[in-house]
Design a protein around this nucleic acid. Structure first.
Lengths: 332, 332
DNA sequence: GATGAGACTGCCAACGTTTGCAGCAAGAGT
DNA sequence: ACTCTTGCTGCAAACGTTGGCAGTCTCATC
């Protein structure tokens, strides 16, 4: 079917080994034969069989990527960055979507682990022990989560949160509601802690509603709860929740950015489609993705040597748009 | 490293062939030995090597999926459906994103073609001849595009467009502007034709602006052009353009749904986050994805026999929300 | 002219799986 | 007692690639 080394070899009157070397280890073979082989190979449309190669090398030149929800606009930029970086390094990417189903996460990762050299898990919600065990079986890099004994790329929410709280305070807010993400989510913990610290420091009262799934629908539900409270400023676990909140509040006749302020996290492309546009804490999604690939490939290179579990931390910052403003007098 | 057939065989005192048969062709081996082998295999955590298997079978049990832009909310539902259906059938999915870069499309597809059994190309913009040639080299199914000699899954925009035009007419509109998609896009042609036919039938004047890339930014640009025209109703090539239009118009103080009506196509999840919510022509994205997989696997089964290039056509319908309304008196 | 070095190249085994063929034992039919 | 079937199992080849090892040839050196 496809052109094999043997056919190229026959056409050149050399052995398969020579052809193999000519194409992968150019300086090991006579310049003249090499160019001849290269020409014939190109002419015949030769492409190495990945199966044959990986059988002997033990590698697959493929990395796996597990995300909770491709439809969540936070992830596509990460996915794109992962693919781009992987492609640069001649790796293919297998993607699995768990559909926010925590139970499938580990199963999908295990399934993938048979056909990849390493794994990138984005925002996993599986129990720490299981993740550590997984990381012992093959190189794994976690995005948005720190795991014992494995590499990870995380964001530091503190700066962004501090800016967000200071922004609200400067507008006159003294009370903030946190619209929490999934209960067992690692990044929900991080964000909540960062927000609590920032509130403490600025003498702001912090309340909490939730948990909510990172979906627009959940945000709409959150809006109703929020509206019946006495708080005029909300910071949501992510943009989707924030957008759901905005959508629902607007629908109910409230003016977001005047009567109530909403801040999201992720600064996804969607932040700019609503009116008013969503004030959001920017997360460097693309960097998250490419850093994860770099870290993973590093681990692959070191192989069995020292796994050196590194954590890369990326900064966040507030992007102010129209969804935040001065609170009404009665809620200052 | 990983557990192999040979190890299981040794542990069971049988040959590798027997183990292989026991696990893939159960009725070919004695019931007793089979259960013993199955037990040991599970115990040892045996998992077949995909490389070994595909070397002899010639298959990879993987399908490729090429999309123009993961970040475009139209595609995630398709991707999810493809993955889900493929997983059911024990296939893995390799995804490639062309970033709307037409030139990369074919290159990515070719690269993928070496490691997959078949390919699904979503909304390709490559020239027909190249696509036909690609389809001759391996099984390919096209989504949102009909290609000579290859299977495809497309949508029939006619019904949805008819409903959209009738909806606008019933509100009092006599003029509609089409915000065109990319010039060489097959589905742009389809949509434009369907719209033209519907306008003709309803005695509506049709104008056109564009072309625009399917991105929110482009929609914003479209909004300014639209606003300076004398038309109070627009149907956009897709939801992203429509959302960009709405966002920009709202920003400039116009009331979408009153002073101007906007209709999108795709009915993506985003349609409900804006205010007013976007009236959109619903496209069955999930069905598009699973139908594509079904069609592709069918082609794989038939193998070299008869490629039988089938076209599956899915229906569209209008979903009325808040972005459409009665036109102002001076623009009736 | 013998020796050694160096540059290329070919042979062959190995990777893990599947599968056609042959072997074997046990039982059925004559 | 003989052959024939039937049911099960093992042998060995094949898939395409890589890489260690050894072989050949050329050329310089003494």
């Amino acid at each position: 079917m496809a052109v094999t080394l043997a056919e190229v070899a026959a056409a050149c009157n050399v052995s398969t080994s020579t052809v193999s070397r000519a194409l992968t280890d150019p300086e090991k073979v006579n310049a003249e034969t090499r160019t001849r082989i290269e020409r014939v190979a190109r002419q015949l449309g030769y492409a190495p069989s990945r199966a044959g190669r990986s059988l002997v090398s033990g590698r697959t030149d493929t990395v796996g990527l597990v995300v909770p929800d491709i439809a969540n606009p936070f992830f596509p930029p990460i996915i794109k960055a992962v693919q781009a970086r992987a492609r640069d390094k001649r790796y293919a990417v297998l993607i699995a979507d768990t559909d926010e189903h925590v139970a499938d996460e580990l199963e999908l990762a295990r399934g993938l682990s048979r056909q990849v050299d390493g794994l990138i898990l984005a925002s996993p919600r599986t129990a720490p022990a299981d993740l550590t065990r997984l990381a012992q079986q093959l190189p794994v890099v976690f995005v948005n989560r720190e795991v014992e004994g494995a590499g990870s790329v995380v964001i530091d929410e503190n700066e962004g949160m501090r800016e967000a709280v200071e922004h609200l305070v400067s507008l006159g807010h003294r009370r903030i509601t946190y619209l929490a993400g999934p209960r067992r989510s690692w990044s929900n913990q991080q964000r909540r802690d960062a927000l609590a610290a920032a509130c403490e420091q600025n003498d702001v009262e912090l309340r909490e509603l939730g948990p909510f799934e990172p979906q627009i629908q959940a945000g709409m539900r959150a809006a109703d709860l929020l509206q019946s409270s006495e708080v005029a400023a909300a910071i949501a676990y992510d943009d989707l929740i924030a957008l759901g909140v905005m959508s629902r509040l607007t629908e109910r006749g409230l003016q977001v950015g005047r009567e109530i302020s909403v801040i999201g996290i992720d600064d996804s492309p969607l932040s700019t489609v609503t009116h008013p546009m969503l004030t959001s804490i920017h997360v460097p999604a693309a960097e998250l993705g490419s850093a994860a690939v770099d870290l993973l490939l590093e681990q692959l290179r070191e192989a069995e040597a020292t796994p050196t579990p590194t954590t890369v931390k990326l900064e966040t910052r507030l992007v102010i748009r129209g969804s935040t403003g001065i609170p009404p007098d009665n809620l200052r």
